[in-house]
Deep mutational scan, measured.
Amino acid sequence: EFSMMFKHFDKDKSGRLNHQEFKSCLRSLGYDLPMVEEGEPDPEFEAILDTVDPNRDGHVSLQEYMAFMISRE
């Protein structure tokens, strides 16, 4: 189920989600993330990124995504 969600939000089929795609994916899974303006701080989402994209390369791989989802179950 999680990998299907990942593929759905991987719009460019790159095998990874940019942070915006990842945020959309989390919202569709029921995460209550506040709407913030582009460039505004988003501490809740930043905290999630610290876990799922610790190297802050700007992308979430399928492996990082799956590890995050399994840790939340």
Rank of each mutant, 00 (worst) to 15 (best):
D12L: 14
V52Q: 00
P34I: 07
M5H: 03
L62I: 10
F45A: 01
V36W: 08
I48W: 02
M66D: 09
I48P: 01
P43K: 12
L62E: 15
F22S: 07
G30A: 04
V60M: 00
M66L: 12
L29H: 05
D12K: 05
E64I: 03
S71D: 15
E38A: 12
L29P: 00
G58T: 01
D57K: 15
D57L: 14
G39W: 08
G58E: 01
E64M: 10
A47I: 05
E73F: 13
V60W: 00
M35L: 14
Q63W: 04
C25V: 07
I48M: 07
P54V: 06
L26R: 00
E73K: 12
H19L: 05
F9L: 09
A67G: 11
F22M: 02
P54Q: 07
F45Y: 07
M66A: 06
S3A: 04
D32G: 10
D10R: 05
F22G: 01
D50M: 03
S61W: 07
D50Y: 00
V60H: 00
D12V: 04
I70E: 14
G30N: 09
D57M: 13
R72E: 07
L62F: 15
F22L: 12
D53H: 02
Y31L: 13
V52F: 02
Y65H: 07
E73S: 14
D42V: 04
F22Q: 03
R16S: 09
G39K: 07
D32A: 12
S28C: 12
V36K: 14
D12W: 03
D50Q: 06
L29M: 11
A47H: 09
H59Y: 14
V52Y: 03
P41I: 13
V60A: 02
N18Q: 03
I70V: 12
P43H: 06
A67D: 14
E40M: 14
V36L: 13
G39D: 12
D42R: 01
M4K: 09
H19C: 03
T51K: 14
S61G: 14
S28N: 11
F68S: 04
G58N: 03
E1R: 12
P41M: 12
S24W: 04
Y31Q: 06
E38L: 11
K13P: 02
V52R: 00
L49F: 02
Y65P: 01
V52K: 00
R27Q: 14
Y31E: 08
L62R: 10
L17Q: 04
S3F: 10
